[in-house]
Design a protein around this nucleic acid. Structure first.
Lengths: 241, 241
DNA sequence: TTATTATTGTACCAATTTGTTACAATAATA
DNA sequence: TATTATTGTAACAAATTGGTACAATAATAA
């Protein structure tokens, strides 16, 4: 959304971008049985926000989202999905953006394009936590993972956007088969079940879960896995298309 | 989308609207066991298009969609849902819009705001066919129902938009309970089953369908219905929230 | 080396849901 | 009054899901 600007973006016109339109990205990761999302923290303001960006005038909307994702995570080929367009008037509040620009030493005029109303397209993304390398944008001093269960206060309506993304992820989890995008290349059945339990926030029965997953025909069983656990070694699986 | 303009909208600036952003509406109805959608036909051009519109600068996005819906159908309180944002560059083709404006006797300059790139938010709506009164906009000479199974050639990417709306309707049909919005206030179980069969494009088993629908607890059974049919009179049902 | 321990893989049965057939009840028509 | 097509529901089979049980196993502890 109105948060990620490269130095060259703080211009009086913003002519390189589609006016009034932005992208907000809820980037999910999974680590130590916790769902996490990427958040930016803005220099000298204490404001925390979702990664986002604008759409170049010669760029497809979905490509702009992919660009934002890749700029914040270093990854390409990310699982990415539109989930909602946030277009209410009451999300228009120039104060946070003005604070961010002021912290950057820029005092914009009141009609600066970044201070006007924005409609924002919400995307959610699923990434392999172990592969993503969070990269702050030019205005933020950190880009890092935060536990979804314990988020800090977010700027504007970003808390609402996160909730809507999570709702969509929950309903998409079974219909589309997307959970795998949050895991590493190979994983155990227990990993997968823990992921599902965390996303859906409910316990699942081990036996039934395994039966259901295997019946989908999207898992390839690999060799046994003998890590530190003092127990029977589980199989490893890989997702197959 | 870039199709509905009142006379006052054909101005050099379009300052009353958010720039570059539009709404396309796929308005579904159901009549004589056929799914139908509303289409506009533009004067003197033969172009057919989805109803659409723009967002006023002081208007919520969803309210703009409701306004478009009410302007084309005369109905308020319509079931309405966002389903996708169409933001590819290749949907930008000024020719059809120029033809529509020319047919209206207006020769716009090449940089006219209506001839530039638009990102369009797709909404689908479900209305009671018997209550909706299709109303053309100021540039079209007809607004009418067309069989989804037998659509004419549509402008730009509108065929694609319709397909995506239908896909969404199909997956939403069971998750949310929205089919009733396409029926009249009261209906028979056969009506409801026919609706489901038409939307999903597959035969369903009468007994199982009835059992499932009744088990949802969202139907109120009314009196018997004795219409023309030379058969046992079916019950009427009403949808309850 | 051998018991201990926690977990894994899978078999098994119960409970529930879904798929299918059957048939009596019924409302108009012949 | 018989005929006809449809409706409402019962009945049962098949499939799916929920839950338990238990042998197999990999490390650790004795």
């Amino acid at each position: 959304m109105r948060d990620q600007l490269h130095p060259e973006e703080i211009e009086p016109d913003g002519d390189d971008f589609l006016p009034g339109l932005a992208i907000d990205a809820v980037i999910f990761g999974f680590h130590q049985n916790q769902l996490k999302i990427l958040l930016l923290e803005y220099r000298n303001t204490g404001l925390m926000a979702l990664p986002g960006g604008f759409i170049l005038t010669n760029e497809n909307l979905n490509d702009a989202a992919r660009r934002v994702l890749s700029e914040r995570t270093g990854l390409s080929d990310i699982y990415l999905e539109q989930f909602y367009v946030f277009g209410d008037l009451n999300r228009f509040d120039p104060a946070p953006m003005r604070a961010i620009m002021a912290a950057k030493g820029f005092m914009p005029p009141n009609n600066h394009w970044l201070l006007r109303r924005f409609v924002s397209v919400g995307y959610y993304a699923l990434v392999d936590f172990t592969k993503a390398v969070p990269i702050p944008d030019s205005l933020s001093d950190s880009c890092a993972w935060y536990d979804l269960a314990n988020l800090p206060l977010l700027m504007q309506d970003h808390q609402f956007i996160v909730q809507k993304a999570l709702d969509t992820l929950r309903t998409d989890l079974d219909r589309k088969l997307i959970g795998f995008n949050l895991l590493a290349e190979t994983f155990t059945m227990a990993d997968l079940q823990s992921l599902y339990e965390t996303i859906l926030d409910q316990k699942l029965h081990r036996s039934g879960f395994q039966r259901k997953m295997l019946s989908l025909g999207i898992l390839e069983r690999l060799d046994k896995h003998y890590s530190g656990g003092a127990h029977k070694a589980p199989f490893l699986y890989r997702f197959i298309k």
